[in-house]
Amino acid sequence: MEQLVSQFYEKYALVQTQQVRGFMHTIDWDNRFIGIKGSRGVGKTTLLLQYIRLHFEPNKSVLYVSLDHLYFLENTLYDLVSDFYKKGGLFIAIDEVHKYPNWAIEIKNIYDDMPRLKLVFTGSSLLHIQQAKADLSRRVVVYNMPGLSLREYIQFETQLKLESYTLKAIIENPIAISMAITQKVKPLHYFDDYLKFGYYPFYLENKKSFHQKLSEVILTVLEVDIPQYAYIPASHAILLKKLLAVISNSVPFKPNMNSISERTGISLNTMKNYLKLLNDAQLLELLYVEEKGINSLGKPEKIFLNNPNLMHNLSMDANKGTIRETFFLNQLQYQHLVFASSTVDFMVAGKYEFELGGKSKKQKQTKRLQDTYVVKDDIVIGTDFAIPLWLFGFLY
């Protein structure tokens, strides 16, 4: 345990607190049992260490551990936390719970047996708390952590304080809001770079090697995270890679399941499962038609990569229109339900419909439809009928 404590103190000393994501303030830290899910690379570990650095002195009352540490090959999490608690521990942050086989049962027992302890854990976006091997759903408050929004990326780049806006506000006041923002900063100056490398906070370490590191993140998800979570033989990771490669160079598209099955050599049932796993791992985004009944859980209407950074990394010929739609879907889906629309590109929150295009996009397709809006790329200020695409990067 001494080695874990020593390594925690080293991390505590090194973590920076000058750039803290607003996501930290969306969490109710008064809860005794908190879970934070998110894809690899969105900054879960940094968030934990920053919170500890900002609220605790480095003493026996607080501890951070990661469950991928070699210590846990021969020691249990429960015994470690019990020892920590007996010595006055009050707050423990547990990282990478999905790397520990019996994490759900042991964390449940920790929660039940140590009533004065606050526990926060992070895990892969693949985790489904309701499917855990212990009844955690009524004990834990779970938060889903996204990557950086365009607003957050600009804040990191400029150190400016920029406000976020609700979807309703953006729809109702696109001119006033875009003018207020552009008086402080030129968002289009940062937009292209955000699309290339701004979604994952680790770009701050080194922009030049960003895509090399993102490739490593993708491979780890395919070769380690998904096989471990779904009990898929490691040898089948090649099938996940094939499926992702086929989709990456076709997105967005209406999937022909039989055709994809033939191209990848993956059976239909297995492929449907793999698509869901890639979606849960936040490598893909499956877009469905909004309809009631079991059919809405069947074949997706369209398949996208999760975010534009993945497109620049994986897609050999990503056109501007595809990147445009991927950005819009990615920024909206964190807080809203997004579906495919039969009349335009997207339906959001069961009410609003959006048609995306470049700055020359006409209103003709949407002018007779209520609650339907044109979203234009390459414009700075909104108009009476058009909303700038970049503005949807200020939702969170």
Rank of each mutant, 00 (worst) to 15 (best):
E2Y: 11
Q7N: 13
Q7P: 06
K11P: 06
Y12I: 13
A13C: 05
L14K: 10
Q18A: 11
F23D: 03
F23E: 02
H25Y: 15
T26Y: 12
I34E: 07
I34Y: 07
I36N: 08
K37Y: 09
S39P: 14
V42G: 03
G43N: 01
L47D: 08
L49M: 01
L49E: 00
L49A: 00
Q50L: 00
R53T: 11
H55N: 15
E57D: 13
P58H: 13
N59F: 02
L63T: 09
Y64K: 06
Y64I: 05
Y64M: 05
D68F: 00
H69L: 07
F72I: 08
E74L: 12
T76E: 08
T76S: 15
V81D: 02
D83S: 15
F84M: 04
G88K: 03
G89K: 04
A93Q: 06
H98F: 07
H98M: 10
H98P: 02
K99L: 09
A104E: 06
I105P: 01
E106L: 12
E106G: 09
K108F: 01
I110Y: 04
I110W: 01
I110K: 02
D112H: 00
K118T: 14
I129T: 08
A132Q: 04
A132W: 01
V140H: 03
V142G: 09
Y143V: 05
N144C: 07
G147W: 03
S149P: 04
S149C: 07
L150S: 04
Y153T: 10
Q155I: 09
Q155H: 02
E157P: 03
L160G: 03
K161W: 07
E163G: 00
I175N: 04
A176F: 09
A180M: 13
T182P: 00
K186E: 13
K186I: 13
H189P: 03
Y194L: 03
Y194S: 01
Y199F: 09
L204R: 11
L204G: 00
K207H: 04
K207I: 02
F210M: 00
L214T: 07
S215Q: 12
I218R: 08
I218P: 14
T220Y: 08
L222T: 01
I226K: 01
P227W: 05
A230N: 06
Y231A: 15
S235L: 10
H236D: 14
L240N: 09
I247G: 11
I247R: 12
N249C: 02
K254Y: 11
P255Y: 06
I260F: 06
I260K: 03
R263S: 08
R263H: 05
T264S: 08
I266P: 05
I266D: 04
M271H: 06
L275D: 03
L278T: 14
L284R: 02
E285G: 13
L286F: 01
L287W: 02
G298L: 14
G298M: 13
H312P: 07
L314D: 09
M316P: 09
E325K: 11
F328Y: 05
Q331M: 13
H336Q: 05
S342E: 15
T343N: 15
K351M: 08
Y352E: 03
E355Q: 10
L356S: 04
L356Q: 06
G357V: 02
K362P: 15
K364N: 15
K364Y: 10
K367R: 14
R368A: 12
R368K: 15
Q370T: 15
D371E: 13
T372M: 10
T372P: 07
Y373S: 02
Y373R: 07
V374S: 03
D378Y: 11
T383L: 09
W390E: 01
F392R: 04
L395I: 14
Y396H: 14
